[in-house]
């Protein structure tokens, strides 16, 4: 996958979270966005997801510019998969209904085809036993796996994850990270914002360090984690990898 950022700028009030970022990100399957909180990595992911519009500049994904008109952006979002930190699922619907909703209402699948696809992802992610439970009856890890199943069921071009494990305890984190590793092994394209440095290091093909409103360093994980060249990246990694 190839992502071209040209003069990308996003402000919230007077604060430029991304300031005139120009960079090409080329990677085989998995891109990890890391960096300090408030550094702009979630903002970048939300722009790539078509959820936020930049104030200036442009983004191209595989030579196709991101749409700007809302209806086109909606269709773009429907064609990819997005999973947030928490509260992805609709609490008034069961796990199965959560997966069915976009298949029927957005992708206009026939009911039996939607049922078949839902059953397929539930089986594949070992969630069949929980199909008829409401989110409140599921653990945090199960909820995230259902949210990932919902995204995968729509056959997305690629998948975006915004800190998918940061609201989970360690055991559940492992269960979700295993699933992500599995998706990567299937050859899917994943872009994720993560605080799990070990996971980024072992799974990502390319790591981008987002901070101070720009991409401070972009490198394959081995290089970035062992010999970071930017002093701020060195300091950040030194602090969090010390423990």
């Amino acid at each position: 996958m190839n992502i071209e950022l040209r003069g990308l700028t996003k402000r919230f009030g007077a604060n430029a979270v991304l300031a005139d970022v120009t960079r090409t990100l080329s990677f085989a399957h998995t891109l990890a966005l890391i960096g300090p909180s408030g550094g702009g990595k979630s903002t970048l992911l939300r722009i790539l997801a078509g959820l936020l519009t930049p104030d200036a500049g442009s983004v191209e994904v595989d030579s196709r510019p991101l749409p700007t008109a809302e209806e086109e952006r909606r269709r773009y979002r429907a064609g990819i998969g997005i999973v947030f930190q928490a509260y992805n699922l609709f609490p008034h619907l069961t796990a199965r209904e959560n997966i069915l909703l976009p298949l029927i209402q957005v992708h206009r699948l026939a009911p039996d085809e939607a049922d078949a696809r839902t059953a397929e992802v539930l089986t594949r992610f070992q969630l069949s036993a929980h199909a008829d439970k409401h989110p409140a009856a599921l653990s945090g890890g199960q909820r995230q796996r259902i949210a990932i199943a919902r995204a995968v069921a729509t056959h997305p071009r690629f998948l975006l994850f915004d800190e998918p494990t940061s609201a989970l305890d360690p055991e559940m984190t492992a269960e979700v990270l295993d699933l992500l590793a599995e998706l990567r092994a299937e050859g899917r394209t994943l872009i994720l914002v993560t605080h799990e440095m070990g996971f980024a290091r072992h799974t990502a093909d390319l790591v981008a360090f987002v901070g101070q409103g720009t991409l401070l360093e972009v490198a394959p994980p081995e290089a970035l984690f062992t010999v970071p060249s930017h002093p701020d990246v060195r300091r950040f990694l030194g602090r969090i990898l010390r423990h």
Binding site: A49, R74, R77, I82, L101, Q105, R150
Partner: peptide
């Protein structure tokens, strides 16, 4: 707000 963002993320229209 998180519910609205989830709805946008899966591609629902505003009426939906």
């Amino acid at each position: 707000e998180s519910q609205l963002e989830s709805a946008r993320a899966i591609g629902l229209t505003t009426p939906q």
